[in-house]
């Protein structure tokens, strides 16, 4: 004979599971519809999650190598990495083979996690606050403010889109400095220095990450 408590637990589990199934089914059915399109609130929710995850990592006190892995995971989860990588390659994305594109995307994600992860180290003891979101063209701009110790607050802006099939951010501006543009310039310079050889650039980028 189960006790009263056990029955209660069992019941709530069943209820939760059922609700979950319904929600899941609804999600699958409704997602392509217009009612589920990205809006300012959802863009803000995404950036709230990104910021919460970044804040958790920078206050975790984990080792640098672990933090870089954490940032890579955050980047993969919340950013539209294939679109960002393709943009960073610029015109060269057109002559890249499918294998080169996918290899570059993978290496680029690691490179970004390490490069920007090092910057986030400066955020230790600080926090990022999400301010507001608004629609711009076909996507959403979410403004945040970074508060660092002994530093005037500064603006960090995320651009969010659902064009990849899920809500993801595809660009970030730190005090007006455009991440996509800065990385396109850097990757372009790496290609130039290697006579446009995409494979060599990928191999060397792998070393940087």
């Amino acid at each position: 004979m189960p006790t009263h408590t056990q029955i209660h637990t069992l019941n709530s589990f069943n209820r939760r599971a059922t609700l979950g199934l319904i929600a899941g089914a609804l999600g699958v059915a409704v997602r392509p519809g217009a009612a589920w399109a990205l809006d300012a609130e959802r863009a803000k929710v995404l950036v709230d999650k990104v910021v919460a995850d970044i804040n958790a990592v920078i206050s975790s006190g984990r080792s640098e190598a672990q933090m870089f892995r954490d940032f890579e995971r955050i980047f993969a989860k919340y950013a539209d990495v294939p679109t960002i990588a393709r943009y960073a390659l610029g015109v060269d994305a057109r002559r890249a083979s499918a294998r080169q594109l996918s290899e570059f995307t993978e290496v680029f994600a690691r490179y970004m996690a390490v490069k920007y992860g090092k910057r986030f180290r400066e955020f230790i003891g600080g926090r990022i606050e999400v301010d507001r979101a608004r629609k711009v063209k076909s996507f959403y701009e979410v403004r945040t403010t970074a508060h660092l110790r002994g530093e005037a607050p500064f603006a960090v802006t995320f651009l969010v889109s659902d064009r990849s099939g899920a809500d993801k951010f595809f660009n970030m501006f730190i005090e007006g400095i455009n991440m996509l543009l800065t990385e396109r310039s850097e990757i372009g310079a790496m290609l130039d220095a290697r006579g446009g050889d995409i494979d060599r650039m990928i191999a060397d980028l792998r070393k940087v990450g």
Binding site: E141, E175, G176, I177, L181, T182, S185, A189, M190, A193
Partner: peptide, 23 residues
């Protein structure tokens, strides 16, 4: 890979942002 181009791009964006005030 090209520190000159990076410094130039970062400076100009940052300076224009400061002078522009809002985006």
């Amino acid at each position: 890979a090209d520190s000159y181009a990076q410094a130039r791009l970062i400076y100009l964006q940052s300076r224009r942002f400061d002078l522009g005030g809002d985006m």
